[in-house]
Computed example of a mutant assay.
Amino acid sequence: MAATAMQANVEWRQNMEFVATVGSGHEVSMDGSKQTAASPMELVLAAAGGCSSVDVVSILEKTRQQVTGVRCEVSGERADATPAVFTKIHLHFIVTGTDVNPTHVERAVKLSADKYCSVAKMLEASVELTHDFRIEPA
């Protein structure tokens, strides 16, 4: 199987502000001082939540669940030493809908964590990743 190449270019703007332009042409602002944009480490959390959320929504749609919303609250703990890498990341999914089956949500979250989410699979080599969910009526 051939590898898929991806790329991003990061350009310094001013102070600790940078703009990343990714291969699809989209831009993402970053700020190492967290004053004007998310920090690169905050974007790692967002990437984990985004990647897993895509999987969860896709799987729930395939099981014809009446989902009206999915939110992923991601929290992370970082080491006290330099580099301050993440040591723990927790993804908490809040699924909103009508008659949503908890078994389907549990399966979707588990499949994302164990099989589909590329970001989570990459991080799990060095980070303790945990997941849970809650279902709320629409």
Rank of each mutant, 00 (worst) to 15 (best):
A125I: 03
D99F: 00
S24N: 15
E17M: 13
S33W: 07
A5Q: 15
E106A: 11
A120W: 07
A2Q: 12
L60Y: 03
V119L: 10
A79V: 04
A2W: 03
K62M: 11
V119K: 01
E42Y: 07
I89G: 01
V67Q: 02
V28N: 06
G76C: 12
L60G: 03
V44F: 03
Q14A: 14
V109L: 10
H104K: 13
G69C: 08
K34M: 11
C72E: 04
V127H: 03
T98M: 10
A79G: 10
M41F: 08
V85W: 00
G25A: 03
V127L: 11
A20S: 13
L129I: 15
E42T: 04
G23V: 07
H26L: 13
A113T: 15
A5L: 15
M122I: 09
E61K: 15
A108Q: 09
M16Q: 14
S58Q: 07
D132W: 03
I94E: 14
D80A: 13
L123A: 04
N101E: 15
G32M: 08
C117H: 10
H131I: 00
Q7P: 00
A113P: 00
D31I: 02
K110H: 14
V70L: 11
G32C: 06
L129K: 09
D114H: 03
G76H: 07
R13L: 14
F133A: 11
V119P: 06
M41L: 11
S126Q: 14
A84R: 15
T98Q: 13
V127N: 05
A138Q: 13
L43F: 12
G32W: 10
I135H: 04
T87M: 06
T4V: 13
V105K: 00
R107C: 12
S24E: 11
T36N: 15
A47F: 03
A38Q: 04
H92L: 08
S33I: 02
A46G: 12
V44S: 08
R71G: 08
V127C: 06
V56C: 08
A8N: 08
M1F: 11
D55R: 03
N9V: 15
Q66H: 12
E27P: 05
E128T: 15
V109Y: 03
S24T: 15
T21Y: 09
E136W: 06
S58T: 11
D55N: 09
V22N: 09
G97F: 03
G25F: 08
S24P: 02
R134E: 15
S126H: 13
L91N: 05
K62E: 02
L111D: 09
N101K: 08
P137F: 07
T98P: 07
S52L: 12
V56R: 00
V74C: 09
S126E: 14
A47P: 06
V28S: 04
E136D: 07
M1V: 11
L111R: 01
F86K: 09
E106R: 13
A46E: 01
I135R: 02
F93Y: 09
V119D: 13
I59G: 02
D99H: 13
V56M: 05
I89T: 05
K115T: 06
N15G: 12
G50L: 07
L91T: 05
E136I: 10
G49Y: 01
K115A: 11
P102G: 06
I135P: 06
F133Q: 10
E11F: 09
